[in-house]
Design a protein around this nucleic acid. Structure first.
Lengths: 242, 242
DNA sequence: TGTACGTAACGAACGCCGTTCGTGTCAAGT
DNA sequence: ACTTGACACGAACGGCGTTCGTTACGTACA
């Protein structure tokens, strides 16, 4: 990003807009100048092209033509780097103005945009699993979602609890997408394992699963994702009207 | 302990039903004689007392008085070991006979039992996130859950898709429990971080979150868990009746 | 009985990882 | 010109999952 031509000047400050460093310390041709932003950029790039597993401190550092130790000036540890990556990506989620007449549709759209944003970075969604989405940009999305539920007439208490669950479904769906993608590599093994498990079991231990096998495997990820959201919203509405 | 030859006298078989190491006397007390089962036992024990992170191949091996290489005879890799741990734990979930009149209550109870089983092993729930619960004992639980939804009059298609979502909520709740537990150690840091994030933001970017702060933090994990399930079931019922 | 064989056990090592420490090196302030 | 302070970063630490090649032993067979 930028910076190749930046004028000379200042060492990374903790404050202010992270601009360029110039330090031609080592014969560095045209590389990015090390800043929290540049580090997150590099990490996201690696994640997008490979996967989250490939985002190691060493790999990120190598991408920036430096050693792993240098990153720790700008990033407390790997965990925080991953959080910042997720935060950044959440910032890409566009927020439509709330239209109470279309609130349900808007919830679907918002969560789908969030899903797509995460799916662009294989593995990143797993960072969001189970811990509070308490970074700045994620909170903005959560706030908007809360606004949508309130606009739909959901009671404040239900809405407040609901905005935990909807991102949860979204996140889990994204993780599932990641796994299914990874199955491209190890898929046969997994399928074999499952089939082996199945054929080793007495069929009458799974009467329902076997009977409705077709329904179980039907639909793609998107359909199932929107189904889950729709059911949850329907549940919220049903409660509110009671 | 005489770590070497004396106790390891018998060769495990790789073949046949995983039932018997016939000559083994199943020696739990003094020292277990290395088998897939013993390895999973040891791993679960470590997980229960510490956390999943502590379940490393080296640590498990040490617990069994051997080296890490020895485990690979019985377990393909760490991932498979974790899967087997989860499978084992899922086997502890009791399955009540289905009573159509109480199906909703039974769903709550079943999932809560599953939640408790996972919560007993910190971190283990994360193994289930995002990948198909396709081990034997997990499928049995899923089958039972499907039976419950069908007994409740949910359409087969909705039920089939629903049994993806309900375990998802359960699993995510368990992961959240783990994280909250871990916050006992790093909690202050996290809380500080969140508050720092909040105070660095313009308050009008989070109007709804700030307004309903009380509702957001109300309730404990159990209440929120059952709320999520209840809403989802209400949604399923609402769809079916429409 | 003697011997060959299959295989569990495992010591040692490989190549990663996240993170820390101490030192080099320069820009800015005085 | 000198001090100061912060960034850069080489090197290393301890740990990880996994593999390789060898050893040791129960068993089957000659």
């Amino acid at each position: 990003m930028s910076t190749t031509s930046d004028a000379h000047g200042f060492p990374p400050h903790a404050e202010g807009p992270p601009a360029a460093r110039s330090r031609s310390t080592r014969g560095r041709p045209a590389k990015s100048p090390l800043s929290a932003e540049a580090i997150v950029d590099a990490a996201l790039e690696i994640c997008r092209e490979e996967a989250l597993d490939a985002v190691t401190m060493r790999r990120v550092a190598a991408e920036l033509d430096t050693g792993p130790a240098s990153l720790y000036v700008y990033v407390r540890n790997r965990e925080e780097l991953l959080r910042q990556m997720l935060d950044r990506v959440s910032g890409d989620v566009a927020l439509e103005e709330i239209d109470p007449a279309r609130w349900r549709e808007q919830v679907h759209d918002l969560l789908e945009r969030w899903l797509r944003a995460m799916e662009a970075y294989p593995g990143l969604a797993s960072v969001a699993v189970g811990n509070p989405p308490a970074t700045e940009r994620m909170m903005v999305v959560a706030d908007h979602l809360l606004g949508l539920l309130l606009a739909g007439g959901v009671t404040p208490q239900d809405a407040a609890w609901g905005i935990d669950i909807l991102p949860l479904i979204t996140t889990a769906t994204a993780v599932e997408t990641d796994v299914h993608r990874a199955l491209g590599h190890t898929g046969e093994e997994t399928v074999e394992r499952i089939q082996a498990t199945l054929s080793a079991m007495s069929p009458d231990r799974l009467p329902n699963l076997l009977r409705y096998g077709e329904e179980l495997v039907s639909g793609d990820g998107d359909q199932r994702f929107h189904f889950a959201i729709e059911v949850f919203l329907a549940g919220l509405v049903a409660r509110g009207s009671g």
